[in-house]
Nucleic acid binder design. Sequence first.
DNA 1: ATGCCGGTGATTGGATCCAATGCAAGTGCC
DNA 2: GGCACTTGCATTGGATCCAATCACCGGCAT
Lengths: 217, 217
Amino acid sequence: MGETKETSTGRVVEQLRALILDGELLPGERLRQEELADRLGASRVPIREALRVLAGQGLVRLVANTGAWVSSLTHDECVDLYRVRERLEPLLLEQSLPGLGRDELQEIDAARRAVDECRDVREFIALDRHFHSLTYQAAPDGYIKHEVGQLWDVTQYYRRRFTEMQDDRGRALIASEHGLLVDALMRGDSVAAAAVLEMHIRRTRLALQHAVHLFDG
Amino acid sequence: MGETKETSTGRVVEQLRALILDGELLPGERLRQEELADRLGASRVPIREALRVLAGQGLVRLVANTGAWVSSLTHDECVDLYRVRERLEPLLLEQSLPGLGRDELQEIDAARRAVDECRDVREFIALDRHFHSLTYQAAPDGYIKHEVGQLWDVTQYYRRRFTEMQDDRGRALIASEHGLLVDALMRGDSVAAAAVLEMHIRRTRLALQHAVHLFDG
DNA sequence: ATGCCGGTGATTGGATCCAATGCAAGTGCC
DNA sequence: GGCACTTGCATTGGATCCAATCACCGGCAT
């Protein structure tokens, strides 16, 4: 039951997504079809389909007959996305928690420690995402998990920028919240876990609301 | 400032979406590219792009090298979508309420009456959606409004099926909830409005959870 | 100088053509 | 008779070609 043979469009989607998430393509950057076709070794047809897919995911902005750009967010849009995360991620966590066993919980705690100890911004972004993903891993694949993934995707660039500005106090707060979250998970206390997670995202949103300077416009 | 000249892909997306929402294309139905190209008067290229877009919106299921089908939902998936609606729509309503003026509120109340009086299933679905859309109209266009629209889209077929099974008691409950919602809106009471709306969706979800027979599987 | 206008090149959008994949029917073998 | 295999066809995927659109630039008039 090996992989269903991947389509070229699918590969292009993954490659472009990776380039955007890694920050090699920055918000506002123009995406020319022919240039991408060269770079990714495909013709323009799968490129165009991929751009449409990524536009649907919010990573790319398409203007008819004109072109494609890497999406950028306004301050308000980004804050809005965090409000959505505040509401969806606790729900996802509740769906995941009952399925987390001893081994998964150990893995989660290890990931938490890795986040704590990390001082590099790019690595922090990856480790933090990995940590939260692990807490969601036992939730069924479906709309919510998919949507949460997209929310992380479209905000990734700004999370990185925001993390760059973070001081020790901010990092300490994150460490505390992650600690409380893991504790709740280990006790199987879904109410507490959801509450801590909502607070965690909410506090980040409020901090973000003061960081207007990260956004152009 | 006339319409930006629409692209062919865009038109196909709209036409296919309409066909699905109107129930002319049913969940599980196969979508053949050439057939659609004939029917909609375009070549296969914009059809393929449109199918990718609709797949991203969850209205179509694509399998590589095999084909496209109108999406169908399992019972669990549908219930999950309602849980998301429970969390997102109150948020959207809160964003809209402050922008609703006298005229809009009158229009909303008129729409509410129209829903109350309607006895035809297809018309009910349209009127109910129109009513709720009006309550959201003053919210800024953005991720949340867009996402909520998609949630209504992908559940449309099942809402219709569910409505068909509804008895007078169910209709009366909806009328009561809509009435309380409009009252809260008119008083500018966003807390009450959000609470009523959440209850409204939640109650529908619970009723839906007992309606397993609407789903194949 | 500034703002409007038209032409030209770069870029996107769509159609056709060809290749690749998968499914189904039919055949042979056990 | 049932099952695996093969062959052919329907359908999807990708590349190239051509048309349509837009942005940029220079010229002209005010």
